[in-house]
Design a protein around this nucleic acid. Structure first.
Length: 849
DNA sequence: GTACGGAGAGGTAAG
DNA sequence: CTCTCCGTAC
């Protein structure tokens, strides 16, 4: 608060190194940070006063505008760094902004204390004024895990059946309410009737419980500040005075609570106050609004100019990222949406030589992963591309696993972004729970988590007694435990165990001020027996978990103290992964927003997955439009190459399901799209029934034995296919000859026109099957060689195939057991299994008996 | 009180 | 398929 009311023009060497440097930089070499901005960007940077809405399409230099704008404000002496509020949605975006401002201004960035996510800024405000909402400033931030456990307790306390009323469901409702900024008394009647009529009561009870725990959840980080601003105009006025400039990134993703929060900060009351005008600048893209499901209101961006009548609206449409084909494909796709402000991206450098957007088909998700893996190796080896320049963007996180499995076998470096996160691992949470107990004796949830981890003989019975004891005296569990161990309430064995652990905690707490936090952390892990627990664990994961614990301690070095580390952990759930490593990124489309890659792979474009069924069911048309925006986001992440995939079979909930291509594929424009044909091992399937199997034999024995064909998934796929009745709409093996001919004449280029693809897509949809595929060409960088040759070989191998089995033979199958061959069709057999019934299986999986 | 196994349920996206 | 819950055996 030192520079709170100082004029930024006053020279003050101690405050805001950035501003000083920015001003110095301006002196030295004019404002060269403005160089290279186009007129719209420059307007967005230089219109510093009054409300500004920047509609920035994908790749139009949005971040550049934001960061340059901040640099400009600093360099022209309009404000100190501490007088600028800059909000982002993700920690990553915040980090990037800091780094880029640093580059503009030259040197390290310090002193932008109010640049961060909504949540991190919210927590900062709340720590200052916690007592105004009945919290202490050292409150804990609950993670989802704690939240669920707490809700479960409340549901049980209300005598509700927690099967019928799952805590998870309530947590989602809670989230919804808080996203809308609703307090218990404000929730809609319908919602309050939920949970057997106890919806509202549970919400109120939950908040009450949080207060006694001195805790809050993510939603409260916005709700509490809003409540404080409303109830305490003096506090709000302080912030009004402080924040001379407000900047908001990804404005299209703000939810109602965030909107209310911003509005309170931005709209200054009274006519004759002499405060600074409302200098708020919101940057967003309605076409990239993809968080409707978690409460984002596109409406916020649409009503911006109503809210701020003097608003300047600036559109950025000149795209610097992608090729003309990528922009063309993305624009055409998003043009199918009705609810949009309508922007048209364009590039100054369209080049017909640029690769078109590719659409690829595959047999199942495992093949998809394999083919994408090969495409990546191709680019890497043949074109010398860095893995860092490539990304796989999936719709749902379960898709990631297939890729991980495949890349591990291939030995291909990858990194998962936003996947199962470091801080969500069991051992990390356990450890953090210990730390929380030490820093905050009122943290009952943390205490419950680890009282009996490692096992100390403190089971349900003991904990229930402790709970009762604590409840009667209205004190948290740890102090209660300290007392109860001095009484006769507990049997000697649990009493001693409890005494030991709780005295340990007390001792660690006392060491807190005097001991270096990393040393204390190690001491806690050692003395609690937690490390030992994993050392004695014989399971395969144990060594990894111990590694993670070491990593945790290492990462603590950067923080001053245990409490400050804990706060970091609560808010920043993503850890920096070793960025030096060259690796392909795997992430969801949602977490890809704001990023760009030279090459982007977009797998899983199938109805039900993308667009996601649930989005369609729950969101109707607007749900579909949001999915389409997600597709738009995906394509526009690519600078040069976008490669879309769909497959015919995908495992969902462990069951193989046949799928049909996404409608979005039909919405891509012919002119910018190439439909690739069967650049994979399976491709022959469409041609020769199970010709894919035949093709795979050219993959060499090793690949066959280790590869996907041996996986249960492949077998299941075959089985599922077979049980569906085999040949069906695909014409199975019966169309063999047709496709060979046609493809051979086309020179095995494996390429249809985009027009052809459209026809394929539609035709296939008609009979609920994937497009019929031409000859599958097996090609791979590893083997190289002319495709033609392989193509012929494949063709021959299938065409001339003679089964080693004939009708009536007794056979054995690894999965289905013994059976009798009922029908032979090339290398594809129908077998009556003694136990499993009739199945269609590949000859390769059968043994003679 | 704990360890194990079987049954059953559930599974978009993120801070 | 994977996770959680619950009953049973120790």
């Amino acid at each position: 608060m030192t520079d709170f009311d100082e004029s930024p023009h006053v020279s003050n060497p101690k405050s805001g190194g950035i501003a000083a440097r920015a001003i110095a930089a301006r002196g030295r070499q004019a404002p060269n940070y403005l160089d290279g901005l186009n007129p719209e960007q420059r307007a967005a940077v230089e219109t510093t006063e009054g409300p500004v809405l920047v509609l920035a399409g994908a790749g139009t230099g949005k971040t550049r505008v934001l960061t340059t704008r901040i640099a400009h404000i600093l360099a022209t002496g309009r404000a100190w760094p501490s007088q600028i509020l800059a909000v982002t949605f993700t920690n990553k975006a915040a980090r990037e902004m800091k780094a880029r401002i640093g580059l503009l201004v030259g040197g390290e960035v310090e002193g932008m204390p109010w640049l961060g996510t909504f949540h991190s800024i919210g927590v900062k405000i709340l720590r200052k004024h916690a007592e105004l909402v009945g919290l202490k400033s050292n409150f804990t931030i609950l993670d989802t895990d704690d939240q669920i456990r707490l809700i479960k307790q409340l549901i049980q306390a209300e005598n509700l059946d927690d099967k019928r009323w799952p805590a998870r469901t309530f947590a989602n409702m809670l989230d919804g309410w808080k996203n809308k900024g609703l307090e218990p008394k404000q929730i809609p009647e319908g919602d309050s009737r939920a949970f057997a009529g106890k919806g509202r009561d549970l919400y109120a009870a939950y908040q009450e419980r949080l207060r006694t725990l001195n805790a809050c959840d993510f939603g409260d980080l916005l709700m509490h500040p809003i409540a404080i601003f409303r109830a305490h105009p003096d506090v709000l006025a302080d912030y009004h005075r402080r924040f001379r400039y407000i900047l908001v990134d990804e404005y299209q993703d703000t939810n109602t609570a965030q909107y209310l929060w911003l509005r309170l900060l931005a709209q200054r009351p009274g006519k004759d106050n002499e405060q600074a005008p409302v200098n708020i600048c919101c940057v967003g893209d309605d076409d990239q609004s993809i968080y409707g499901w978690r409460g984002a209101e596109v409406d916020n961006i649409l009503r911006f100019d109503k809210e701020f009548s003097t608003a300047t609206v600036i559109r950025l449409e000149r795209n610097y990222r992608s090729t003309g084909h990528i922009l063309g494909a993305a624009s055409h796709l998003i043009g199918h949406n009705e609810d949009r402000l309508g922007k048209t991206l364009f590039t100054d450098h369209p080049d017909p030589e640029d690769p078109k957007v590719e659409v690829n088909a595959g047999w199942d998700s495992e093949e998809e992963a394999r083919a994408i893996g090969e495409a990546i190796e191709d680019l890497q080896r043949r074109e010398n591309h860095n893995l860092n320049d490539m990304a796989i963007l999936v719709r749902a996180s379960f898709q990631m696993r297939t890729f991980e499995d495949r890349f591990v076998t291939m030995g291909l470096n990858y990194r998962v972004i936003g996947g199962p996160r470091f801080y969500e691992r069991m051992e990390i949470r356990d450890t953090l729970a210990y730390f929380r107990c030490v820093c905050q004796p009122a943290d009952d949830l943390a205490f419950e988590r680890i009282v009996n981890t490692p096992k100390r003989g403190l089971g349900d019975a003991t904990i229930r007694l402790l709970h009762e004891y604590a409840r009667e005296r209205q004190i948290p569990l740890i102090p209660a435990a300290l007392e109860i161990v001095e009484t006769e309430e507990l049997k000697p064995k649990p009493r001693n165990a409890l005494r030991r652990v709780v005295l340990d905690m007390k001792r660690w707490s006392e060491l807190l001020p005097s001991t270096k936090h990393t040393e204390l952390a190690e001491q806690i892990l050692e003395e609690s027996g937690y490390t030992e627990m994993w050392q004695n664990d014989r399971s395969a994961e144990a060594p990894g978990r111990l590694e993670n614990l070491k990593e945790l301690i290492r990462s603590m070095e950067e923080y001053e103290s245990l409490p400050s580390f804990l706060e970091h952990v609560a808010l920043v759930m993503d850890t920096e992964q070793n960025a030096e490593m060259d690796a392909v990124s795997i992430m969801t489309l949602h977490s890809a927003k704001g990023l760009e890659f030279d090459t982007v792979f977009l797998p899983g474009w199938e109805e039900g997955l993308f667009p996601h069924q649930r989005a369609l069911d729950e969101g109707g048309r607007s749900g579909l439009e949001e999915e389409r925006r997600l597709a738009y986001v995906g394509i526009t992440r690519a600078k040069r190459r976008a490669k879309i995939w769909f497959v015919s079979n995908r495992r969902i909930h462990g069951l193989w399901q046949s799928t049909i291509p996404s409608r979005f594929l039909d919405e891509l424009p012919d002119a910018h799209v190439d439909v690739m044909e069967a650049n994979t091992s399976y491709g022959g399937y469409g041609a020769g029934g199970f010709g894919g199997y035949g093709a795979s034999r050219w993959d060499g024995a090793a690949a066959f034995n280790e590869g996907a064909y041996r996986t249960p998934g492949w077998k299941r796929a075959q089985a599922a296919k077979a049980s569906q009745g085999g040949g069906d709409g695909w014409s199975g093996g019966r169309t063999r000859e047709i496709t060979y001919e046609s493809d051979q004449t086309s020179g095995f280029s494996g390429r249809f026109t985009a027009d052809g693809a459209e026809r394929q897509g539609r035709a296939s949809r008609g009979h609920n099957q994937p497009p019929r595929r031409g000859l599958g060409l097996y090609s791979s960088a590893k083997r190289g060689g002319p495709r033609e040759i392989e193509g012929e070989l494949v063709a021959k191998s299938v065409a001339e195939h003679e089964s080693a089995f004939s009708k009536g033979d007794r056979v054995f199958h690894l999965k289905f057991g013994n059976g009798t061959v009922a029908l032979v069709d090339g290398n594809k057999l129908t077998v009556d299994f003694d136990k499993a019934g009739q199945k269609r299986v590949l000859e390769g999986f059968l043994e003679s008996i």
